[in-house]
Design a binder for these strands. Structure first.
Length: 341
DNA sequence: CGTGAGAA
DNA sequence: TTCTCACGG
């Protein structure tokens, strides 16, 4: 998932306070996927309401967003639009992998192997229209900006960061760098503990800042070359990349070759130049509004508690925190406008 | 993932 | 107070 260039990318750990007062454009699909795959019971079953509808993502979006707002970080969630035609193949592959994982999940469940079951359940995570609409509805009720990307959310988030509408894009993937985001924040969570895949070990995970300019300087290339490098190694649009070429080799190749895609185009089924062009000039829009509003308390209680069986105590508690965060955020904005305080 | 009750 | 861990829906 995402482009496979992580090991080449220099990043620095930051404190949440470094993001205080800043806006970030969060890749909503990325967040959604995280919530749906990790917020599960021990046998891998996601959280569900009494009608069997999945609610893991609602829990995730609700509490994380409140935490970010409390930390003085203003999130805007950017949702995907239509994927480009040449992503269809990758999406199909993912669908097949999910179906396989789903079968293994049920098999493990029957054998009573909980750890195995959960592992496969997580891999079987799927995002559908209903889950996306739920998340959008909740965020809108919370007064959080929802941005609809015409195509890839990462591209839109990168565009917003490049225009300085936001400080950075936020995602676990590096794609927004290819789309030209000057800054990328990874691990944007409050409580930073993450389970190591497979093992029963937890590690501290801190937010990371990746600065495109520093990445390019460190690698000694420009953004166009970074895109070519990514294409050689493999992106969502040409999974697997070119056989036998990993990140290190790819870096050498793009540095010494004027048009590195030319050589590999004939052994590739997909149009590598079309992918490069897409990273350079993806569909984006200016049709969005970044306004953080008062939450619709009644609407949230109705949606989360009445419709989806969330605990009223917990939701009310969350709402109090959110309201306070919104009002101190407003206060801060006024102070910066009028120079008081 | 994030909360919060109970252990340490 | 800090940490662990089961539960949330």
């Amino acid at each position: 998932m995402g482009v496979q260039i992580g090991e080449l990318i220099p990043r620095k750990e930051i404190e949440l306070e470094n993001l205080y007062g800043r806006r970030v454009a969060i890749d909503a699909f990325n967040a959604m996927y995280q919530f749906l795959s990790t917020i599960r019971q021990r046998d891998g079953t996601p959280l569900m309401d009494s009608k069997g509808r999945i609610t893991s993502h609602l829990s995730g979006f609700f509490y994380r967003t409140i935490n970010l707002m409390e930390a003085g970080i203003k999130p805007a969630y950017v949702f995907d639009g239509e994927p480009p035609e040449f992503k269809k193949k990758e999406l199909e592959k993912r669908r097949e992998a999910r179906e396989e994982a789903e079968e293994k999940w049920y098999e493990a469940l029957e054998k009573g192997e909980l750890e195995e079951a959960k592992k496969y359940a997580m891999r079987a995570t799927k995002v559908n229209e209903q889950l996306i609409n739920d998340a959008k509805k909740l965020l809108q009720l919370m007064g959080i900006p929802v941005v609809q990307a015409p195509s890839e959310g990462e591209a839109q988030a990168a565009y917003m960061a490049a225009k300085k509408a936001v400080y950075a894009s936020a995602s676990q993937d590096y794609d927004s760098l290819l789309f030209g985001a000057p800054k990328l924040v990874r691990n944007l969570t409050i409580t930073g503990r993450r389970k190591l895949p497979g093992k029963n070990v937890y590690v501290e995970v801190k937010p990371e800042l990746v600065v495109l300019e520093e990445v390019l300087k460190e690698l000694g290339i420009n953004r166009e070359k970074l895109i070519e490098l990514a294409i050689l190694v493999g992106t969502d649009y040409n999974p697997g990349g070119i056989k036998g070429i990993g990140p290190k080799k790819a870096l050498t190749i793009v540095k010494r070759t004027k048009d590195p895609l030319a050589k590999y185009q004939k052994e590739s089924e997909v149009d590598l130049y079309a992918i490069k062009e897409f990273f350079l000039n993806p569909p984006v829009t200016d049709d969005y509004e970044l306004k953080w509003r008062e939450p619709d308390e009644e609407g949230i209680l109705k949606f989360l508690c009445d419709e989806h069986d969330f605990s009223e105590d917990r939701v009310k508690n969350g709402l109090e925190r959110l309201k306070k965060a919104v009002s101190t955020g407003k206060q801060r904005t006024l102070e910066s406008w009028f120079g008081v305080g």
